[in-house]
Structure formats: C-alpha cells, structure tokens
Design a protein around this nucleic acid. Structure first.
Lengths: 242, 242
DNA sequence: GTCTATATCTGGATAGAC
DNA sequence: GTCTATCCAGATATAGAC
C-alpha cells in the first residue's frame, strides 16, 4: 500500500535528518509512480524491471550530466554508468530528448507538491515563510542532482518543455510571493517590493544547490544555511521602512 | 591613443547610462588588447583584420551558445553566425576548446580590474559596499552575454581553465567578504557571518544576469534592482544582532 | 528483455585552390 | 586570408540473435 509522504512532511518538525530519511526511501516509489503514469512511452511491461532500470537510468543520467552536461553525455556513457546495454536503455525511452523530458517531468511533480503541502495548517505568514524556506532547502539538498540538472539543462529542452520549466520556476517563486503579500497586507511584514523580495529569496535558495562545492568546502550545513537565510530575509521584511 | 576607462569608471558617479557608454565603445579595444597579448595563438597577422574577426566571433559565439549551449553550437553554426567560413574561423583559434578558453580569458581580465578599481578612493565600508554592488550590476548588465556564458559553461572547461574559473568566482566573492569584514571590525556593520553574507550577495547579483528575462518582463531596471539590493543587504548588516 | 553489431548521420578539423 | 570540399571520429538509433 503506497504511503503518503507529503502529509508526513507537512506535519514533520523539519529536522533535516527526519526529512531526509522519509524522502530517500521513496526514490523507487517516485519511479514506480512515474512508470504507471507513462506506460505508453515505455516498452518494458513488467513493473519491477522497469522501475529498477528507471532508477538506475535517472541516477546515472543526472550524475553524468551534472559533470559534463547533458548534450555531452553520450548514450555509451549512460550505458556504462547504468550497466545496461544500449538496447536495454532504448526500451525505457524512445530518444535522448525523450529521456531529458522524463527527467524534468519526474522531478517537477514532486517539488511543487511538497512545497505547497509543507505549510498546510500554518497560518502565521512569518512561520509560513520560515517553513517554506526550510523545506525548499531540505528538498533541494535531498534532490540536489535533479535541481542542479533542471537549472542547467533548461536551454536544451524543446519548446514545449522549456515553457513548462519556466512556468515551474515562476510557480515556486509565486509561493514566496503569496506569503510575502499576505504578510504585508496583514501588517506583519513591512511594505517591501514583494516581487523583488521573492526573487531574491529564490536566488539565495538556488545558490545552495548550484554552488554546493562552495558550501561543502566551508563546512556549512543545510541547517546553518537555513538559519542564516531566515535571519537575512527577516531582517529585511521585519524592519520598518520609511 | 588608448584611453584608460577604468580610472574614469572609478571616479564616475555611477549613473548607468554614463557607465554604459563608456564601456560600450571599448568592445573593440578589449579585442585589440586581447589580440596583442595572444599573438602566438592567432594565425592572422594584420591587427585590423584580427580584431574585426574576433569581435564578430565573440559576439556570435556568445549569442548562439547562450541559446543552445556551447557544446551544442556547431562550428557551422558559428560560421553562419559570423559570416566567416570555417577556414577563416580556424585562423583565429586552433580548436573549439581553444575558443572556449579565449572567451573566458577575455572577459575575466576586464571584470576583476573594474571591480577592484571601482572603490579606489572610497574609505567608508558602507559606501564601498554600495558602490561595488552597483558596479557589479552595471558591469554584468553591459557584459550580460559574457557573464551568462561564463556561468553556464564552466563545466565544459578543461581542468586548468575550470580551476581558474572557480578562483575567479571566489575572487569576486572575496571583494565583498573583505568589505564586510572591514565594516564589522570597524563597528559599522553588525557581527554577521561575513562568508555567508558575501555568498548571498553574490547569489543575488548573479540572478540579475542569469534570469534577465524575468526582470525584463517585469520591467525592472538595473537601477531599481540596485536600490533594492542595497536596501536588502543593508537591512541585514546594519541591524543590531543579539 | 537484453545483448551485440551495425547502419546512418553529424560535427570538428584540414588540405589545397584562389 | 578566405573559401570549398573532404576526411574521419564519434554519436544516435536500430536490427536481429539469444
């Protein structure tokens, strides 16, 4: 029986370790759900086989692409990385471009769901903001390869998928925008430019998964960064403006 | 007689239009200087010809790469984009990878010079910070294609150039780090985590040239963004911490 | 379902005429 | 210095045996 992780995440206390464990085991679940929803474009019929291969493929594709870039990754690279032959690979997707779309799709659905669910039951805008920042950071920590990939490979997408990627970017930004506007109109936040503020928040969140080497080298943990960011943002939106 | 733009920029009032005009005319100068310093790796001997071609090549390479990515840009694309034949192209560089390095090199030298020169004669850390933020934004506005390119194509560089790119990234971050630390130790800034703060500043600066479509669509000007950013940052470092 | 072998194509780089 | 024509390495995708 499939377990609803999103709800747990919503209620969880947002310690990173708990968050991490919860999501990590569900990697196969994600692929399973993906398989069930995309049966038509996958030649393999046995669920277990398909899921096993998909997990390998997504993992390897992200790892290799994030080092060399998706266009530079050859199917032979992927074959070596997964341990699957070319033929086996092409049973899971119909073309390299198709694979690209699959990767995008697969992550996007997870992200927006978790990000909107995480504030269910929270009313205070300040709490909402904190929790959303934290959840975004934790999520991008767990799914770092996907976040990085998604950011860097947008330009390689086809027209249709490219549009979707942009919409997705704006959608997560809008989550912050809404919280900020709510906070302003209820008088809890100062009357800042909500659009620019949301953009700035997004930019700093992105830095966490894009420049991970930097933070790793400096031994900054997600929790460190999370606390810092909340302070940084709150200093601005809680300070009275003239 | 070559004109020293850096000094002018140092003294200028930092209105964007003035900044822009000053730098725009010097695009050829940059290529000329580049040619003179890299004569050995360029087969063309006549200065004028070389400069004319280099300008075309850099412009087209950046434009095409920023749309499709450098690895996806074929030399035939570049040939079409510049109006030069394959043979003519290969007279200006010895390989596609060489071209990549040339582009990196060309921009890097400009950036670090301008960024360090812009605060000459300024003592107050707060002023310094403002001016550096502003200069960085203006510069990345004028050289947006290069900044974008440099960010997105880092992973395609060879080992040596990759190292340089990272050093360069850290170098500009260090400019902010130094200012912040100076401000803290002189008691003007609050005792914030200077490293994380510098990183956050960098992240928001990068957003300006990486997500330009977003700000363009919302009709945010560089000056708008600059003012917002300075406010945002100062709220944090000027607020007393407990 | 998975493998190997291969058809087909594309892209970087060069040779040699002008 | 620049052009065209061409070579060849390496990539995607498939066919057909197991």
């Amino acid at each position: 029986m499939p377990h609803n992780h999103q709800q747990d995440l919503g209620r969880a206390e947002l310690k990173f370790d708990a968050f991490k464990d919860l999501l990590h085991i569900s990697k196969e679940d994600i692929c399973r759900r993906f398989f069930l929803e995309n049966r038509e474009s996958i030649r393999i019929k046995k669920e277990d086989v398909a899921v096993r291969n998909l997990v390998k493929i997504f993992d390897a594709a992200l790892a290799i692409s994030n080092k060399k870039g998706f266009p530079t990754m050859s199917m032979r690279d992927l074959s070596a990385g997964t341990g699957l032959s070319m033929g086996a690979l092409y049973n899971c997707f119909s073309s390299k471009d198709d694979l690209l779309d699959m990767i995008q799709e697969q992550g996007r659905t997870v992200v927006i769901k978790i990000l909107t669910d995480c504030t269910s039951g929270v009313d205070d805008p300040r709490q909402k903001l904190r929790r959303t920042v934290q959840t975004h950071l934790y999520l991008s920590e767990v799914m770092q390869p996907w976040f990085y990939f998604s950011y860097m490979e947008t330009k390689n997408l086809g027209k249709e998928e490219h549009k979707r990627a942009i919409e997705s970017e704006l959608a997560t930004e809008k989550v912050f925008l809404d919280i900020i506007e709510e906070g302003i109109s209820s008088g809890i936040f100062s009357p800042v430019d909500a659009g620019l503020t949301a953009a700035a928040i997004k930019a700093t969140l992105q830095d966490w998964y894009l420049k991970r080497w930097k933070y790793e080298r400096r031994k900054v943990t997600v929790e460190d960064y999370s606390h810092f960011l909340v302070d940084f943002i709150e200093s601005y939106i809680l300070t009275e403006k003239n």
